[in-house]
């Protein structure tokens, strides 16, 4: 693995780590939502600190260049994360819609009862 790539990985991992930590402190992100990013940056720190790991793993899978392995890992992690986000987003949207619908019907029921708004 080229030295420049290792340095780049290391720096970007550390930067993203700091960024996530700062967000967490400001409560801008929920605790468990940071685990994915912490995990990802840790993986990159390890890979850049121990290049032998990347080379060995690439050989094992049959990828010629370890760089491609890094890309593969990144793409895979992001896709997986994206999918999980999509699931959460759907669930959230569904909950939200249900809530607004129920709320509308509750308002209606309240106005219908004697002693209600109307």
């Amino acid at each position: 693995m080229p030295l420049m790539l290792r340095i780049l990985l290391l720096i970007s991992s550390l930067l993203s780590f700091i960024f996530v930590a700062r967000r967490l402190k400001k409560s801008a992100v929920k605790l468990y939502d940071t685990t994915f990013w912490i995990f990802l940056s840790t993986v990159f720190v390890i890979l850049s600190a121990f290049p032998g790991l990347g080379i060995g793993l690439a050989e094992l899978i049959g990828i010629q260049s370890p760089v491609n392995l890094i890309f593969l890992i990144i793409i895979f992690c992001l896709l997986a994360h994206c999918f999980v986000q999509s699931l959460r987003f759907s669930a959230l949207e569904d909950k939200f819609e249900r809530f607004v619908e129920k709320d509308a019907l509750r308002d209606e029921a309240a106005t219908e009862k004697p002693g209600g708004e109307e």
Binding site: E97, V100, E101, D103, A104, L105, D107, E108
Partner: peptide, 13 residues
């Protein structure tokens, strides 16, 4: 008779 969604949700909803 009318009921009101407090935010816009779309036709299906």
């Amino acid at each position: 008779k009318a009921v009101r969604h407090k935010v816009n949700l779309g036709l299906s909803s």
